[in-house]
Computed example of a mutant assay.
Amino acid sequence: MTTLTRISEAEVRQLVTDWFVKLDVHAPVEEMLPLLAPENLEMQLPEVTLHGLDEFRSWYDGVIHIFFDEVHTMQSLDINTASQQAEVQLVVRWEASRWNAPAANSERLAFDAAQRWVIKRSPDTQNLVISTYIVDALTPLEGFPNL
């Protein structure tokens, strides 16, 4: 049996940063998947709950074709590490543009997204992975449209 290394706060911060940078640049799904738990992944998003990497892959392919010029800016980040997992509460400001055909122009969106994550260490790679990702609230900023 493999002994997993204790999870550090610095590692968690790096994973959170990497996740949002990759979302901003619409990284290929092959770069996103290693950040997610290969087993028992659950993602509760405003529009859908995803289970597993295949459902994430389909969802991601859809959203990168809807939203563009994305920027994620961390507003708050609280990390609670235990030996084998970390619990994260964060608020990220998400700004993006979208175009709904046949509109003449795109529209800019801006939200504060309150989220809770559970992060574990992969027994296969020893890298940190997101196993639970819950969006508790998606609050539009004043003057911006809702989803």
Results as ranks from 00 to 15, higher is better:
92 V>D: 08
104 A>N: 04
49 T>D: 00
70 E>L: 11
27 A>M: 00
74 M>N: 10
126 Q>R: 12
96 A>R: 08
94 W>E: 04
60 Y>G: 10
141 L>D: 05
55 E>N: 13
143 G>Q: 00
107 E>L: 12
115 Q>R: 15
74 M>C: 08
126 Q>N: 14
117 W>F: 08
22 K>E: 03
65 H>L: 03
112 D>W: 15
47 E>I: 12
96 A>E: 07
47 E>N: 15
146 N>W: 10
50 L>I: 01
119 I>F: 06
146 N>A: 10
146 N>T: 13
62 G>C: 05
147 L>A: 13
23 L>Y: 09
143 G>T: 02
121 R>I: 04
45 L>E: 02
12 V>D: 00
132 T>G: 08
37 A>S: 04
69 D>P: 09
99 W>A: 01
30 E>T: 13
32 M>T: 07
105 N>Y: 15
124 D>G: 15
23 L>K: 09
11 E>I: 01
42 E>H: 06
60 Y>R: 02
133 Y>C: 08
50 L>Q: 01
109 L>P: 01
103 A>Y: 08
74 M>P: 09
123 P>V: 00
15 L>C: 02
18 D>M: 03
43 M>A: 08
45 L>D: 00
131 S>A: 08
131 S>T: 11
10 A>S: 07
36 L>A: 03
21 V>E: 09
86 A>K: 05
95 E>S: 15
73 T>E: 06
